[in-house]
Design a binder for these strands. Sequence first.
DNA 1: ACGGCGAATGTTAGCGCTAACATAGGCATG
DNA 2: CATGCCTATGTTAGCGCTAACATTCGCCGT
Lengths: 341, 341
Amino acid sequence: MNQRKPTSRSTGRVTIDDVARHAGVSAITVSRALREPERVSEELRARIERAVAELGYVPNRAARTLASRRSNTVAVLVPSLSNAVFVDVLAGIHEVLAPRGYQLLIGNTRYSEAEEENLVLAYLEHGPDGVLLTGHQQSACARARLAASGVPTVHMMDLAPGSGAPSVGFSQPEAGYAMTRYLLGKGYRRIGFIAAQLDERTLKRREGYRRALAEAGYAEPYAEISVPTATTVGLGTELLPALLAQDATIDAVFCCNDDLALGALFHCQRHGIAVPKRLAIAGFNDLDFAAWSTPALTTIATPRHAIGARAAQLLLARIEGAALPVDSLDLGFELRARESA
Amino acid sequence: MNQRKPTSRSTGRVTIDDVARHAGVSAITVSRALREPERVSEELRARIERAVAELGYVPNRAARTLASRRSNTVAVLVPSLSNAVFVDVLAGIHEVLAPRGYQLLIGNTRYSEAEEENLVLAYLEHGPDGVLLTGHQQSACARARLAASGVPTVHMMDLAPGSGAPSVGFSQPEAGYAMTRYLLGKGYRRIGFIAAQLDERTLKRREGYRRALAEAGYAEPYAEISVPTATTVGLGTELLPALLAQDATIDAVFCCNDDLALGALFHCQRHGIAVPKRLAIAGFNDLDFAAWSTPALTTIATPRHAIGARAAQLLLARIEGAALPVDSLDLGFELRARESA
DNA sequence: ACGGCGAATGTTAGCGCTAACATAGGCATG
DNA sequence: CATGCCTATGTTAGCGCTAACATTCGCCGT
């Protein structure tokens, strides 16, 4: 007889015991057949697989996680999904982690430290094997919890050498600096700056912009507009005229991202402002459309996909307990000189 | 003495028993203080909260799920995150489900039935309380598993009245039809169609386009280009010239989405094709940039956010066991007549 | 023929939490 | 003042699975 246990479980769901009984083996053999098939004889494996199929058995992840003390899960926190940048980062992460059997817990912090904290607390309940964070501005509480949990963590996008926090990204200030230097080198004399969202990355880019201008001998105030609202193309169409109203002499504008730049470009097209002749426009990120707009957008290409992939690899190494020397992995950026500047 | 159990658990992690011992109460009281604070006296609650804070206790979700047979989780499957449409849908879902304490399991099927099937299998292991799917083209296996699991399911984006599958969305063919009719009404005589990705929604829009042309007395072949590759702005800049090469007489082009339309617009700008004078361009979705391009894009506004929100509400109702009459919720669409057509 | 060894399978004992029932004590009721 | 009831808390028994430690059996060398 196949009956090993008196009856099936009270719950309606098919459990591993049901499968075991059906196949005439013990539960642990089913468990092994599912997770490490090579450890079970061919004959039993076939019988078990048939039983699984016949009963429509679906393993219970909660039970598995609880018993094995391993969730096979990695939590990823990004500030936005509307921003293509982070979607690319996620794709890179997925590419590395999915084949290794990790499931992603994707959390959208909406650029809010408080939401991020909530997500950290919530995801820590899953006992993730690792956590991937965007940037370095976590709340003290989130930081403390993460540290206390002992879960390996890697930060993405920005660098923070010497902080002890392993990170993969590129230098945001350097990128802002590089673009401003490029514009100066091109002969533009009055370079404006448009920023939205004002997250840490944007602020760092602005820092680079300011440093470049200061080094070039320009005195403050610079022609800047920074608003904390979310970035959209529409906002770009508003911010550029606002900047021009504030200072009609600017001959170039550095937008903290491509969406704003596209909005600015649309504004120019509509109002007959020649780009780059009368006004040069520079963006940031090199999104899909940047290469195709008319004129094509001069921008900074950021290694988003690679950041995700390398961060995931680093995390994997930490999960597997590697002793890790390197703490900040700089993936650099590339200035794409195109038509708009 | 506070010692109720001989020792703490073998694992390093702080458990509910540790908290209970620390606070001098039983584990179930801690459990209640955490989940239904009003059921615990103020004094104990305070003591327990202090213990939780002092020990840095983080509940174990796997154990909770296993014991309560409730995951408080909803799985959402979308075909893409690069497509702003689905990101908006997700936002709508989040808005409804987050306040109700549900955690989202976001899965990206990458427009692949096979990947979708994998995700369904994987997410079913979590014992989700509900599942939100995009479209109606699930694999037979995925469909069977979902049905067998008994988990409430709601489909988003398309309608499928009479299919028995509850869905929230709008009629894709009608939308394609409406835009084509509009263009015909505007006096355009030779209307082309550009499509990429060729997922079910795109194909249905094309269906509507064809029906409108057929009704208007046009005979096939129509001026169509459909490619299965992923939609990008760059692709739009390629497909439009390809279409024009195929048939130079077209005076309007209906792009199956706004990204393609933007690419088409960029192509026209670059090559001095007057829009809409020489060539009208219509898009689909009314993404952020559509209202701001120059000329502004005529397109179909789709209720993405509302679809997510309403689908989540419907799912909630089903999770709570409501007997549900309505099976297809049509949220409609709106044609935004702007400058490009 | 025998001990020993490795491969295949099984038994036991939880993982950390909560449902369900049990209990203790306070309070109003007639 | 006994009764019943309600509130606050506790006890017990799993949820479904797997780690760790048996056990069994065949096969090897000597």
